[in-house]
Amino acid sequence: MNAFRLAGDMTHLLSVVVLLLKIHTIKSCAGISLKTQELYALVFAARYLDLFIHFISLYNTVMKLVFLASSFSIVWYMRRHKIVRRTYDKDHDTFRHHFLVLPCLALALLINERFTFREVMWAFSIYLEAVAILPQLVLLQRTRNIDNLTGQYVFFLGAYRVLYILNWIYRYFTEPHFVHWISWVAGIVQTLLYADFFYYYIMSWKNNVKLELPA
């Protein structure tokens, strides 16, 4: 495993830790999109179907379990926890996320690395992850006071995607057989979605002012 991949996984993990810190410790999910969190739970459930079939490494298995458990527990907290769910900004989290699922499934049936159940579900999870951040970005645009933890959460998620692209470039040159067009194209699309956010995040950090996205 190269350094970009490890750094990418660590920023991904860090984003989850930041979000859990906000939810578990501060008991708030203000500014967090439940729709995005539900999509991520679905992404991990679809992608990690091979969890108990293919053993890759202990690291791989543990990380998969962490992402599965954390994504489902975040959804649980936002829907069911007595205090946390009251902080959920339902009125602004209006993105019709269900409409993302079917097109991603259709695309996965058409474009996959192999027409088997697990490969189609893998491609589906890749496509869905690429667009899963959209409800969150829309909610951020509508949020007046974006708190630091929410901003950091989205920043780390975006950083994870950038690092994965660097990881693919590295792997392309060091592992001649490593060609995964599906994840590369979807990953680049996914990263581009963060471009606007990154711009405003870095500007707010540079100018030491509160993060706010223009509507």
């Binding site: 992608r47 293919h54 890759i56 990380m63 998969k64 992402f67 690395e113 192999r114 490593f178």
Partner: peptide
């Protein structure tokens, strides 16, 4: 012929 490799990324 290149076979798709196992998905070893997260």
């Amino acid at each position: 012929d290149l076979e798709p490799e196992a998905h070893d990324e997260l």
